[in-house]
Design a protein around this nucleic acid. Structure first.
Lengths: 102, 102
DNA sequence: GCAAAACATCAATTATTCTTGATTTGACGT
DNA sequence: ACGTCAAATCAAGAATAATTGATGTTTTGC
């Protein structure tokens, strides 16, 4: 299919899993390291890592390495561009009717 | 899992498929009946019906019956509330740090 | 009432995503 | 260099979602 729709879909794929939404909700109150997130959302280590990768690749979350810890936080830029994308996708264009709608 | 996250995820599930994004894009330029959409996005009849159901159930699209035709259009209310949901999910809260972030 | 058109639904297959435990990698302290 | 801890990656299975063709439903025209 169209590659730009694939790319847009990726952002929403990051948002369409309840566990990832639970993670996002935790990050709203500030940066967190993986080990803390893991407890807060009650998930296994490899499971958290899997979901964090998806969130980071979508651009909504960014990570910061500090020694052996990884800290995650919401990305201002990523979040804002996700909102703008959604707005763009749902904003009406020029008003044209198809044939069968007169 | 938390049922409210399940419910929120549903909106984004509607948006995370490239074919559905292609459909949305078509609807931006105005209402369309299923038969026209089907041609425009090059999909089979039952496939379109499947995707339209998901879009309608998310609230982003609404449908209107006219005889044997079904017309679909973007829902102002649904689109706006999807944007507000995304904004809410990505807006930082009170700034608290977890223990290991000092 | 019958046939056809426009969709919706169903059922079977395929594809994708999620989960889980095991292994690997990289950083740190000793 | 070795052991340990934090995460990432891998691999196998389970769960979900998408595709496709067949069947069902409703409306319209005859």
């Amino acid at each position: 299919m169209d590659s730009f729709h694939e790319k847009d879909a990726k952002v929403f794929k990051a948002l369409c899993d309840p566990r990832r939404l639970a993670i996002l909700e935790r990050l709203r109150s500030g940066e967190r390291c993986a080990c803390v997130l893991q407890e807060e959302v009650d998930i296994g280590q490899s499971g958290l890592s899997y979901h964090m990768k998806i969130l980071c690749e979508s651009g909504i979350v960014e990570s910061r390495q500090e020694g052996k810890w990884t800290h995650y936080r919401l990305s201002d830029v990523g979040c804002e561009s996700a909102i703008m994308l959604l707005r763009r996708l749902t904003t009406p264009d020029a008003q044209q009717k198809c044939d069968c709608c007169k």
